[in-house]
């Protein structure tokens, strides 16, 4: 029961901040995909930069464990290309369309319906996917620091510097 309440409160905070950041809108999402409006990129990078530092500090203190998904090149690459095609058509991603509905953008309902159908189709196709694309290039539960064989405190500052350069370019170009 506690977990359900945690999930609910976390979701409310997340939805609140998504709305404050104005990233729940079709125009913003398509703008990001066309590299014309980088609001969403700024939001996502800021979030990742803060969260990666905090979560790795907690991990080093032994207070949390990472929850890694396996890296399977076939499934990851093919899946992300398919996802991108759909994202461009819909103009919302799974989480933002829920928030978009909360903001009154009720065209998100079509996306939500479509996504339930898409999830059902995936469940139908799962036995076939499991024997094919989900076996192509399976590297298991790996991280960038593992592959590069360096401390995560090397990878994290590099990512943050990269993010700050992206921010600088966005601001210079007024995106």
């Amino acid at each position: 029961m506690n977990m359900l309440i945690y999930g609910f409160i976390t979701g409310i905070l997340f939805g609140f901040l998504l709305q404050k950041g104005r990233v729940l809108r079709y125009d913003k999402q398509i703008g990001a995909l066309l590299l014309q409006d980088m609001t969403i990129v700024k939001f996502m990078f800021s979030s990742i930069m803060v969260a990666m530092v905090g979560i790795y500090i907690l991990k080093d203190m032994g207070m949390v464990k990472l929850d890694l998904k396996p890296t399977i090149l076939g499934a990851n690459i093919l899946g992300s290309i398919i996802f991108g095609l759909g994202w461009g058509m819909l103009g919302y991603c799974p989480g933002t369309q829920i928030g978009a509905l909360g903001e009154g953008r009720w065209d998100a309902l079509w996306g939500i319906g479509g996504m339930i159908v898409g999830a059902a189709l995936h469940a139908e196709a799962y036995p076939y996917l499991k024997g094919t694309v989900m076996t192509w290039g399976n590297y298991g539960k790996i991280t960038l620091p593992d592959i590069l064989d360096v401390s995560h405190w090397v990878v994290i500052p590099v990512f943050i510097i990269f993010g700050l350069i992206v921010f600088l370019i966005c601001e210079r170009k007024g995106l």
Binding site: K69, I82, Q97, W110, G118, A119, H122
Partner: peptide
């Protein structure tokens, strides 16, 4: 047209979610 938007949003949603579940994202 609301119908045109609904049609493409629905298909887009189905495609996006199939891809997301395949990539396990």
């Amino acid at each position: 047209s609301i119908i045109k938007r609904a049609f493409f949003a629905f298909i887009g949603g189905a495609v996006a979610m199939f891809g997301a579940r395949l990539a396990d994202g």
